[in-house]
Design a binder for these strands. Sequence first.
DNA 1: GTTGACCTTCCAGCAAGGGGAAGCCCTAGG
DNA 2: CCTAGGGCTTCCCCTTGCTGGAAGGTCAAC
Lengths: 139, 139
Amino acid sequence: MNIGDVAEKSGLPPKTIRYYEEIGLVKPLRSANGYRTFLESDVHKLAFLGRARALGFTIEDCRNLMALYEDDQRASAEVKEIAEQHLERIDKKITELEQMRATLSNLVHACAGDHRPDCPILADLAATCLDNELIENTA
Amino acid sequence: MNIGDVAEKSGLPPKTIRYYEEIGLVKPLRSANGYRTFLESDVHKLAFLGRARALGFTIEDCRNLMALYEDDQRASAEVKEIAEQHLERIDKKITELEQMRATLSNLVHACAGDHRPDCPILADLAATCLDNELIENTA
DNA sequence: GTTGACCTTCCAGCAAGGGGAAGCCCTAGG
DNA sequence: CCTAGGGCTTCCCCTTGCTGGAAGGTCAAC
């Protein structure tokens, strides 16, 4: 199977598949003309990777998950550990974004959004670290 | 004022300040010995940029926000427009992350996390795109 | 035999800086 | 007067996870 077929089957672009080979996530064979030749098991691996990436796992996580997947002596605790750490990263990121969202939302609501130059958004960005100028900026 | 002082006052690392000069966000003067020389207004700008970045605005957003900040003929509508678009980006990102979180959380809870190899997390990653193998993998 | 769709490699680049080397500059201490 | 140190400079590579493009080989069809 050539890379184009694999791309279609796995849902990953050819570029991505070549990249995954480059970093050692898949190891396709080569046919005489230099083309990569993939087995069904490669398609399976690539789909696995695509799914893991879609869940936000890093490439390194994917590498570890793949290794565990292929090791039938694995302990599910190891997999769970990786997933839990990732869950924490996600929660942290969500918290950060919620925080930004809250601040930004306040500012947006406070801004008239008309033709006049007065703007609480700019005032906030400008004033936060410079209390002595706050009065000038908001006066 | 040299870059070290500015870094302390603005809260941005020297590396970041040099980078911001490189991409034209600030334009410090140079003294005879080649050192960058910053004015108070530069510190002010850099603090503005730091705050905007902390709210997740892209560098390009920052560039536009700075331009509006320095234009006293601006319409607050233009600022609000940038902020609203950013708010949408944030909301979209949060939604994505919540989606990942939900799926991942389900998988984590379904996984025993013990010494045994059976793992719903790996099974899900492996099976999603290959229904014909689902039975084997979950059997 | 030649077009056009594949495939190959390599190079460059995105965001937004971080790390570190090699080399000035400036000041304080002995 | 010399030296040690800290701060400053430029330069280039590294990060994450790809994506785009150029130059060129291959293959099946018409």
